[in-house]
Design a protein around this nucleic acid. Structure first.
Lengths: 196, 196
DNA sequence: GTCTATAAATGGATAGAC
DNA sequence: GTCTATCCATTTATAGAC
């Protein structure tokens, strides 16, 4: 039952989030204010409260939006037959996703916004993405919590080093194949880890 | 030439930094104010400016102090004959160091304080620690920028996952031996990577 | 739905008396 | 060196007119 009213409302919410993302990218995740967001969408700050209950609510919507985008890219990936190829392609996609937006990386993966905790609804989106990763690993024959945790540490470690020490560069994310060779040689039950 | 005057001055600076660390641990790296620090040391906020030129100057001193502490722990490590043993011990030390203080981890290793850049002097301390790591790897027979970068990504990845997703736990940092086995099997030129 | 006006608070930082 | 007083900017958020 999305009548015109609620449709327009949702559209304005999107505009606000887009403006917030733009400011977050330019000035850091926590470096923007409601006034600035309002100005960017042609409003005054108080009007934002029609669309979001608080600044944290905006953060929460951004968090969910970020994970939905990640899920979408996961879903849009080419269907590769070899599960190991899928794992490699997924890792590259993830690293591209992370380094293209430092603010998003911090909001989604690091506890940098004081006091912000994603709502259960937003957190569910994040969980879903992790669940997909688990199944890709499983299809590749890699099972168990510790193997999954080692994988997330390795790949997210590349990402975090990259954006923390050389934003915009490729010094760490360029090591993804080397990292995956290392990981697969160790975690893959049987033979051929090498596919490029 | 440290007369009583400057000695006392330095002592007060230390007190201020200790108070700032305490607040940062309790309320997040960016979650404390000059007023709170001042109160913690029995002063009013303006008096802090006798000891530090700005809040960023306090961050800078904390940054240098954090890395000096890390360097000190590095220096205090038992002298193990096997370079691979030294590497393993160093990794465990580093992970303990990181997880015992989330605020310090964020300040030293992640770009979470908007606008803060360490001064060249403070940055030099950080560089020195990294240089030590480079030499430990080299003694183990591991050379080259990419091997070093892969190592930092792997170990810091474990640390960051731990403090971001399960602060206080051991789910990721407990994988350090598994991670090092994996790393050494891949990067060590010759045979035995396994020592425990 | 958007505005003006403003609350109510907080922030870092400075001036100048003591 | 420490204080009071205060500046000045800024913040999130609310009340109520239009």
């Amino acid at each position: 039952m999305p009548d015109r009213r609620t449709e327009r409302h949702e559209q304005t919410r999107e505009e606000i989030l887009t403006a917030a993302w733009g400011l977050a990218r330019g000035q850091g995740v926590t470096g923007w204010t409601l006034r600035e967001v309002a100005q960017a969408v042609g409003m005054r700050a108080p009007s934002l409260y029609v669309y979001f209950a608080s600044k944290d609510a905006i953060y929460d919507a951004m968090f969910a939006q970020g994970y939905r985008e990640l899920a979408a890219r996961l879903a849009a990936m080419p269907e590769l037959d070899d599960p190991v190829d899928r794992l490699r392609a997924g890792a590259r996609m993830f690293l591209d996703f992370v380094v293209e937006d430092i603010a998003r990386h911090q909001l989604l993966f690091l506890p940098v916004v004081p006091g912000f905790e994603p709502s259960s609804g937003s957190y569910a989106v994040a969980e879903q993405v992790l669940e997909e990763l688990r199944s890709v690993l499983l299809e590749a024959g890699i099972d168990g919590q510790s193997s999954l945790d080692l994988y997330t540490a390795l790949i997210s470690g590349l990402a975090t080093q990259q954006v923390s020490n050389e934003p915009g560069g490729t010094r760490w994310i360029g090591l993804v194949d080397q990292a995956l060779d290392m990981y697969l040689a160790s975690e893959l039950p049987a033979s051929d880890a090498r596919h490029r």
